[in-house]
């Protein structure tokens, strides 16, 4: 699965916006099989921590399904 690095700039419920090194923002929805919850996203956003997201494409939406989040 593809990965992307960046910083969580917005977190809302189980959705978040990741801004990569080039300043481009991407929208992700947490997969139900992930260990992370919406509350974890708030912490990452507050800390502006750099993370790596493993994701897959989602059908019929402009966004991705996040399968794994790791701090880097």
């Amino acid at each position: 699965m593809p990965t992307i690095r960046g910083v969580v700039t917005i977190a809302q419920e189980s959705r978040f916006q990741l801004t990569d090194g080039e300043g481009v923002s991407h929208l992700f929805v947490l997969s139900p099989h992930m260990l992370a919850e919406g509350d974890d996203l708030e912490g990452l956003q507050r800390e502006q921590a750099r993370i790596r997201v493993t994701y897959e494409a989602a059908r019929n939406i402009l966004g991705y399904l996040a399968q794994r989040i790791e701090r880097i």
């Binding site: 809302q12 959705r15 019929n60 939406i61």
Partner: peptide, 10 residues
């Protein structure tokens, strides 16, 4: 925008 909801029904 506010709720970070993805565009759907493309």
């Amino acid at each position: 925008e506010w709720n970070t909801l993805p565009a759907d029904n493309l």
